[in-house]
């Protein structure tokens, strides 16, 4: 049992590193990650759990870190956008987003990449419909989602970059 208190001592492992901190019980996990630990790649875009900019993978599950209190993550293993690249090498999805102009302002991108990472882990060769369902919880206002879907499709198993366009593509 974790005893009843307005503050909690928690231990969280993020991208392989373990952090021990005392937090206010009311602190949202996203504020803990950003403000307390300084991992500012995870973003905040709304206050209703609607936009997905704060998406992380916690204990293997894609979640919105603004919909959890920091103490709920006690003992959890978390992956954030900062953990996607290894030794300076971008993940296939990160590269694909760059190569297919899958981002513009880049603000939704970390959450979008976490959603896409989770999607491909669970479904390595998604259809366009499945990709769209996989990122439904992540709002992007810059791209109309077109190049995001394209970026994810391009790294899916057996990818064929055919989205029905009858025109020459520059990328």
């Amino acid at each position: 049992m974790i005893t009843q208190s307005a503050t909690q001592a928690i231990e969280v492992t993020i991208n392989g590193k373990t952090y021990r901190r005392v937090v206010e019980s009311r602190q949202l996990l996203v504020h803990f990650i950003r403000d307390t630990l300084g991992l500012t790649g995870t973003h905040i875009g709304c206050d209703t759990g609607s936009c997905g900019a704060c998406s992380i993978i916690m204990n293997g599950k894609l979640v919105k870190s603004c919909m959890l209190l920091a103490p709920q993550a006690d003992g959890a293993v978390i992956e954030t956008v900062e953990g996607l690249a290894h030794d300076g090498e971008l993940s296939a999805l990160q590269e694909s987003f760059r190569d297919h102009h899958g981002l513009q302002c880049g603000y939704c991108t970390p959450g979008m990449l976490m959603a896409a990472t989770y999607l491909l882990r669970n479904n390595p060769s998604p259809s366009e419909e499945e990709i769209r369902r996989g990122i439904k919880g992540n709002i992007c206002r810059c791209t109309g989602y077109v190049n995001i879907v394209r970026s994810i499709k391009a790294v899916a198993d057996g990818a064929q970059l055919d989205m029905g366009d009858g025109v020459a593509k520059e990328v």
Binding site: H43, V81, L90, R98, H101, L103, P110
Partner: peptide, 22 residues
């Protein structure tokens, strides 16, 4: 005239952009 990948994106896809709340 070329659709080269953007210079901005390496930092942005790694969560290394510097946005105002950062």
């Amino acid at each position: 005239g070329q659709g080269i990948p953007r210079k901005e994106d390496d930092r942005l896809v790694q969560g290394e952009g510097s946005f105002i709340d950062d």
